[in-house]
Design a binder for these strands. Structure first.
Length: 153
DNA sequence: GCCAACGTTGGC
DNA sequence: GCCAACGTTGGC
């Protein structure tokens, strides 16, 4: 099993929005970065555990835990002229962009702020904390993942 | 294939 | 709103 962290701007789609979604499940659309796409497409498997992170907001934080419930399939928003994520270069016959479905497992009782993560010795190597890191879908190691769940209690 | 210009991300 | 870091684009 693998472990991941995905970023979302809460103004756009928050963990509360996920909690309100049908079956507490959403398609993770709009990823338009090749490295992130490759993780989604090539490595994410059903049952993988996913940390849900709020970015570009007042308090950037890990908000809860999700899991992958559907593996990669074409991101239809890339074909939609009216979508913010429209990409004319992605063709139905050969889709450039993919998405997975994730389901909420549980929201943390308290957000686990970025500021806190920075102070934890065992998380020094996290991709999230790397200077200039912008990956919106990123792998998390098992020890990092376990530590974050422990901190979230 | 290089690299400057530009656009985006995301913390602060 | 600022700005550093990064990714992409496109001329050459």
């Amino acid at each position: 099993m693998k472990y991941w962290l995905v970023k979302s701007e809460p103004d756009c789609f928050s963990i509360a929005d996920l909690a309100k979604s049908k079956r507490q499940t959403t398609c993770w659309d709009g990823v338009r970065n090749y490295q992130a796409r490759n993780f989604l497409r090539d490595e994410m498997r059903c049952g993988d555990q996913v940390l849900f992170y709020h970015s570009s907001c007042e308090q950037p934080a890990v908000m809860g835990l999700c899991e992958v419930v559907k593996e990669a399939y074409p991101d239809h928003t890339a074909f939609d002229r009216d979508s913010d994520h429209y990409d004319p270069k992605s063709k139905q016959s050969d889709p450039t962009w993919m998405m997975v479905d994730i389901k909420l497992v549980r929201q943390f009782a308290e957000p686990l702020p970025l500021e806190k993560l920075k102070s934890v010795a065992g998380l020094k190597e996290m991709e999230l904390l790397r200077r200039g890191s912008r990956l919106s879908v990123q792998p998390v190691t098992r020890p990092q993942f376990d530590l974050i769940l422990k901190l979230a209690k």
